[in-house]
C-alpha cells in the first residue's frame, strides 16, 4: 500500500480508501480501533479537518463508528459494505479502461480471456 497521497484525487477520499483497503485486506478487523484524525494529520502532514472528513465519510456509510471519548472503530458489517461498494465500481474503474486500451491496440477478446484465466486466485 502506498504511503503517499496523490495529487489528483481529494485527500479525504484517499484517507477513506486507505482505511477501507486495510479492512478488506484483513489488517483491520471488526471493532478494531482506527487511527485518530490527529494521527492521520501528523502522518501525512495534512490538515486535521481533511482527515476528519475522510473518517466521517466512512462513519456515514456505517463502515466505522464513533465511541464518544474513546475513538473510532470498525463496524461488524464494514467489510461487507466495502466489498459491495468496490464491486459496484469495478467495471467503471478497471474494466472499462482495460477494454478501451485493448480496443485501441487491437487485442482480441479471446486473448484477454486467456490472460484473465492465467492469473488471479478467484
Amino acid at each position: 500500500m502506498s504511503d503517499r497521497l496523490k495529487d489528483d484525487q481529494p485527500i479525504f477520499q484517499q484517507i477513506a480508501e486507505l482505511i477501507e483497503t486495510n479492512i478488506i485486506d484483513g489488517d483491520l478487523h471488526a471493532n478494531d480501533k482506527v487511527p485518530s484524525t490527529n494521527e492521520f494529520a501528523k502522518h501525512f502532514q495534512i490538515n486535521p479537518a481533511t482527515a476528519a472528513k475522510g473518517i466521517n465519510l466512512l462513519v456515514s456509510q456505517e463502515i466505522i463508528y464513533k465511541k464518544r471519548g474513546v475513538g473510532m472503530f470498525v463496524t461488524e458489517q464494514a467489510k461487507e459494505i466495502i466489498l459491495q461498494k468496490r464491486k459496484s465500481h469495478f467495471y467503471e474503474q478497471y474494466m472499462r479502461p482495460l477494454l478501451e486500451e485493448a480496443d485501441r491496440i487491437q487485442v482480441h477478446k479471446d486473448q484477454l480471456i486467456t490472460w484473465i484465466k492465467k492469473g488471479g486466485k478467484v
Binding site: N38, A41, K42, N47, P48
Partner: peptide, 13 residues
C-alpha cells in the same frame, strides 16, 4: 521546513 510543518500541525492540534 518539513520539521516546521510537523511542529505547526502538532502545535495547532
Amino acid at each position: 521546513r518539513s520539521t516546521f510543518y510537523d511542529l505547526l500541525l502538532q502545535s495547532y492540534q
